[in-house]
Design a binder for these strands. Structure first.
Length: 413
RNA sequence: GCGUCGGUGGCGGAGUGGUCAAUCGCAACAGACUGUAAAUCUGUCGCCCUUAGGGCUACGAAGGUUCAAAUCCUUCCCGACGCA
């Protein structure tokens, strides 16, 4: 069985970017790569065969969701998440740290991971003051108390518990339990949360090494860098996580977490990747718009995951080289061209916009499948092109060319 | 022919004297979505003026009662059912 490792094959001149290969027990991942999100051990609406055929390399499942349903022990009994879901390639699981945010501070609110407001501190306090707002995740220093959205039962997740669940799920790469903070939080809170995330990272690492000793599973653990939008915190976090060790063992790679204001993202990523050691892979958690992918690759990110291709694909928004289109718009009813005439995906090679808009209008399940296949292909392939451009030393040209066309946003073309 | 019930916005269907341009659902139109509480959510949805707001035309048709009618009365048209 191949052990986890990461090799850099080419670096970007004058920037942090690089192309490389991650090896896992279930195959290799050529990086940079777009990781597809299969929260509940399925890419919503897409079969593993379809996923493989469109060129995806990795699937990311979720600790919290799989722990609640069907239960991590059942998944272990099935032979691990990959075997359970019939995905033979590399797998990852997220630790549940994002649910600390999405079911906590963001619960019932219009806050998302990437905020539109340039300066999140300008968010209207009354709107975001949630001290007594209901939430499904409540943070303590030792762990997080979750109230299940499925049946209301209470579950206390500690770093140790998250790692135990993840070892049961048995992915090739797992993440330390962290606290993804809201962009609306002030610096004082970000700092407090960061200390907690660091303490949890240490406990995660310790538990992981202990379990690895016991279960002999070839699982790699990534530590997560947080720190909000503050330079000092981000760099401190990167340094802390990078240097963190238990019995001489550190993290196998890194996650860059947290939520951002769109404009902050590139600086935050740069701050972190300037500090993180070069020889271990970096995963920018939950980010995946095309312009973000260029930004991340340029700034030394090796892995991205994002729900956007599947969520948008299911909801009728499709990527094209001219920007995103809403395929349910009336103008596509009699448009017999493919979604994107340059696209080589199954949906574009075989179906028209008219047909896909019909499927959406008729509430047919296949609509979401075709939309997801197209969007995943689009993003997976975009990152592959970026990777190739790093290898071919023409990243800037490829970026410039793509983004210029993409921003024209010629809807209807 | 007689009787009963009913005719409301693209459709279904509330409302049964003022707070009704008319609840709600569907359809339609548009928007949002970034480690998935999401095959979800939001907005618009009679016409005109630029939003707050204002004006106009509307609840089968035509008359009428009333300060005020989708709502009451009369006649007519149409539909369902019942009796001949």
């Amino acid at each position: 069985m191949e052990k986890f490792n990461f090799k850099i094959t080419k670096k970007l001149d004058g920037a942090l970017g690089r192309a490389g290969v991650i090896t896992t027990p279930h195959g290799t991942i050529e990086t940079p790569a777009f990781v597809t999100v299969g929260t509940k051990a399925t890419i919503k609406g897409v079969s593993p065969e379809q996923l493989r055929d469109l060129g995806a390399a990795v699937v990311l499942g979720n600790t919290y969701h799989l722990y609640l349903q069907p239960g991590d022990e059942l998944v272990a009994k099935a032979g691990g998440m990959g075997k359970f879901m019939h995905w033979e390639g590399p797998t990852m699981t997220d630790s549940g740290g994002f649910q600390v945010f999405s079911l906590g501070a963001a619960y019932g609110k219009e806050i998302s991971k990437v905020v539109k407001i340039t300066d999140p501190s300008l968010m209207i306090p009354e709107r975001f003051d949630d001290s007594d707002a209901p939430r499904l995740a409540n943070i303590g220093n030792d762990g997080v108390s979750f109230k299940s959205h499925l049946d209301g039962s209470i579950h206390y997740i500690t770093p140790e518990k998250s790692i135990q669940i993840q070892h049961n799920l048995g992915a090739d790469i797992i993440f330390a339990f962290d606290e993804c903070t809201s962009p609306a939080e002030d610096l004082r809170y970000q700092e407090e949360a960061l200390e907690r995330t660091h303490a949890w990272a240490h406990r995660s690492l310790k538990e992981h090494l202990k379990l690895k000793e016991e279960d002999k599973k070839e699982i790699a653990l990534f530590g997560i860098v947080q720190g909000g939008r503050d330079e000092i915190l981000r760099k401190r976090s990167a340094k802390t996580i990078a240097e963190m060790e238990v019995d001489g063992h550190g993290f196998d790679g890194f996650g860059i977490g947290g939520s951002f204001a769109k404009e902050d993202m590139s600086t935050a990523v740069r701050w972190v990747n300037e500090v993180l050691p070069e020889d271990r892979p970096r995963h920018l958690l939950g980010i995946g718009e095309p312009e973000d992918l260029f930004m991340g690759c340029e700034n030394g990110v090796d892995l991205f995951d994002c729900v956007l291709p599947t969520r948008l694909g299911r909801n009728g928004t499709l990527y094209t080289k001219f920007g995103k289109i809403n395929i349910t718009n009336a103008k596509y009813r009699d448009d017999f061209s493919p979604v994107d005439d340059d696209c080589g995906c199954y949906a574009c090679k075989n179906y028209t916009r008219a047909y896909i808009t019909h499927l959406f209008r008729a509430d047919e399940m296949f609509a979401g499948t075709l939309g997801s296949i197209h969007n995943i292909y689009f993003l997976v392939n975009l990152v592959k092109k970026i990777r190739q451009s790093i290898i071919d030393s023409n990243f800037s040209e490829v970026k410039e060319q793509f983004l210029t066309t993409y921003k024209t946003n010629k809807k209807g073309v």
